[in-house]
Design a protein around this nucleic acid. Structure first.
Length: 206
DNA sequence: GGTTGTTTAAGGGCCC
DNA sequence: GGGCCCTTAAACAACC
């Protein structure tokens, strides 16, 4: 798992005596890209709201202040944007709130290299994912033979069969489509958002 | 009661 | 100028 370089962590702007000498500057990333980055860097590619908060605060000193403001924006971004999918907790993982992951069809939203503004917002065609409708129902984590991604896939193909299967709904396409889905859900390293972040940091730190 | 999630609204900035 | 994206604020409901 990659971590964000220190160049934008802004930790150096915080004195060792825990008193702020300088106000940390706002990172050049939209909330959507920060959320996507937090999710991409989590082991299972999904995070709770609290984990997203923690990730952002850990990496960006700017977000250790005015928490009420930006956390409200984070919650709004999660609910409002189709690219984020809510995954309910399974029975063996009790706790507060659901998990959030990236919609497998959202792809690389920041391929233009700009993390402040996407070229185009990811929207589902029939709006079926907006609000609570886009919840992927509980993952059966009792099946330990499957990875989380695979469990998610099996649930996803039930929820969105036409988006997974080919137009003829040909079962022979299953393996192909499963592979396709997993590639979308766990993009090749080259296109992972954390690597894009790292590339951006490296090219701007010199 | 605090946290999480949804929804609405307004305003700013960017692009065509 | 209009459309789109993003941010911020706020209200509210549901949940733990």
């Amino acid at each position: 798992m990659n971590s964000i370089p220190s160049s934008y962590s802004n930790d150096h702007l915080w004195s060792s005596s825990s008193q702020r000498r300088y106000a940390a500057s706002k990172p050049p990333y939209s909330y959507i890209s920060l959320i996507a980055h937090a999710i991409s860097n989590s082991p299972e590619r999904m995070c709770t709201l609290a984990q997203i908060y923690q990730y952002i605060q850990d990496h960006y000193a700017y977000y250790r202040q005015n928490q009420q403001r930006w956390q409200n924006s984070i919650r709004h971004s999660l609910s409002f944007n189709d690219c984020f999918v809510k995954v309910p907790r399974s029975a063996d993982r009790p706790g507060k709130g659901s998990y959030w992951t990236l919609h497998p069809d959202s792809g690389n939203m920041f391929e233009n290299g700009c993390y402040l503004r996407r070229q185009k917002r990811f929207k589902l065609k029939d709006n079926k994912t907006h609000s609570s409708d886009h919840t992927i129902q509980g993952i059966d984590s009792s099946d330990s033979s499957l990875t989380t991604s695979e469990q998610y896939y099996h649930q996803y193909k039930t929820e969105y069969p036409t988006e997974i299967y080919d137009s003829n709904n040909n079962g022979l396409q299953y393996e192909h489509n499963q592979q396709f889905f997993l590639q979308q859900f766990i993009p090749p390293d080259t296109f992972r958002i954390d690597n894009l972040f790292n590339y951006y940091e490296q090219t701007n730190s010199s």
